[in-house]
Amino acid sequence: MKLAVVTAGLTQPSSSRLLADRLAEAVTAQVEAEVRVIELRDLAVDVANAFVTGFPNTRLREVIEAVTGADGVVAVTPIFSGSYSGLFKSFFDVIDNTALEGTPVLIGATGGTARHSLALEHAVRPLFTYLRAVVVPTAVYAASEDWGGASDDFTDGLGRRIARAAGELAELLRHRTPKAKAGEEAEEEVVPFEEQLAALRPLIQ
């Protein structure tokens, strides 16, 4: 299994990356998967050039193939002005709108205050629904107060949400057939000619 983790945090260290890492760890604790972390901040110029030129360069194309070829995706964005970041949206805009069809996706977001948490439902979830992905029911939002060092209602609540969302994604991954690697075609089952002929005999008689 391949799990692509896309994070759109702009700073280093980033709370979006921290949330993405915790989500990925919770998923891989339940299902074995190869994790590829993609920091969109490193691809900002490549994404902008893709809009100007009309096609992605080699580096961006490789990242897009990693995301669209993954068996599952964890996508985390910071919330700005009540919605996903421009970089987050721009990256998924350069992906073909059918490339994530049927792919399980766990969405997460971070922000300075909990009042932005609904952005996951009115902005992020509809984006992946449009891309025909299968978005898990639980979305995970982490406000600044969720990162407290002591054990409290805020911190424990975040941990429970992460565990629940990761469990939902892991369950979907368990029931998927791993995608073929890039450049490989899925092998078709070869039915021996004798078996094909035997199946036709009742129809001929």
Rank of each mutant, 00 (worst) to 15 (best):
I204M: 15
A50R: 02
T11G: 15
L3G: 02
V136Y: 05
D152I: 07
M1E: 07
V134Q: 02
Y84N: 02
K2I: 01
S14H: 06
A70H: 07
I79L: 14
G82L: 10
R132I: 00
L10Y: 06
V135H: 06
P178A: 11
P13V: 00
S144T: 06
A33Y: 08
A142R: 02
P104D: 11
T113C: 09
A33K: 02
S81W: 08
H122Q: 03
P56N: 07
F91L: 04
V52C: 09
L23P: 00
S14R: 06
V47P: 05
G54K: 06
R115T: 01
G149C: 01
L200C: 04
F80W: 11
D153W: 06
R17D: 08
T155I: 00
L127Q: 02
A166W: 01
G157A: 12
E145A: 14
R61V: 00
L106N: 04
G148Q: 11
F154H: 12
T110I: 09
L18C: 09
V45C: 04
S151V: 07
A29K: 09
T7Y: 15
L23G: 03
G86H: 08
H175E: 14
T58I: 04
L158V: 08
R125A: 08
F91K: 00
L203M: 13
F88L: 11
P78I: 10
I162S: 10
D46V: 00
G183Q: 10
R61I: 00
E65H: 12
F55Q: 14
L127N: 00
P192V: 05
E189C: 05
S16N: 13
L169D: 05
A182R: 15
V37D: 04
V52S: 15
E189W: 13
D156L: 13
L203C: 02
S14G: 10
L43V: 03
Y84F: 14
T138I: 01
P126M: 12
P104S: 13
E121Q: 14
E25R: 06
A75D: 09
H116M: 11
A29F: 13
E184Y: 12
L118C: 10
A139V: 06
L197P: 00
S151D: 15
A48S: 14
A29C: 09
T177H: 11
A70T: 02
E25W: 02
R174T: 06
S117W: 07
A142F: 05
W147V: 01
T28A: 08
T103V: 15
G54R: 04
T28W: 06
K179Y: 08
L158T: 02
N49A: 15
V105D: 03
R17C: 09
P178I: 05
A133D: 10
P192T: 01
R201S: 09
A165P: 00
G54L: 10
S15R: 14
V6K: 04
M1H: 05
T113Y: 15
A99H: 06
S15F: 12
I107R: 05
P137N: 10
E168C: 10
